[in-house]
Amino acid sequence: MRPVFQVTTDRDSAAWWERTGRGEFAVQRCEACGRARFPARTFCAACQAERWHWEAAEPEGTVESWIVNHQAFGTGDGEPYVVVMVRPAAVPDCLLHGGWLAAREPVGGERVRGVFTPGAGGLTLVDWEPAGE
């Protein structure tokens, strides 16, 4: 089982986590140049504009990599669990992490779909499962 690492959200990220709590996978969209970004922050790195809005996106992507964790880090019990690195379709120049919900291991490049899962500290996490199964 995955261990619980306490994290605190911050003034940039709180609204993103609030949206996952409502079952929404959101990205920031720059209102000046239209570029999407993740994780949440105020400035667009492409054009330096501060104007942006949240935009709901499909929680879809492809598998970039994964690990099977065995070591009992933190509060972990040593039961293996998979963490997957996903390239989200909505923001393809970003990579994000999540749990893996299928019994089999992921396959490089496979299409996956986000699943909202209750996590520690009241956060709603985004885990991933194969898109076509």
Partner: peptide
């Protein structure tokens, strides 16, 4: 800022 999007999934230690 990226760590808070990783640690809740049991992903933080350098070997991971």
């Amino acid at each position: 800022p990226e760590v808070q999007y990783q640690a809740p999934y049991g992903f933080f230690a350098p070997p991971q």
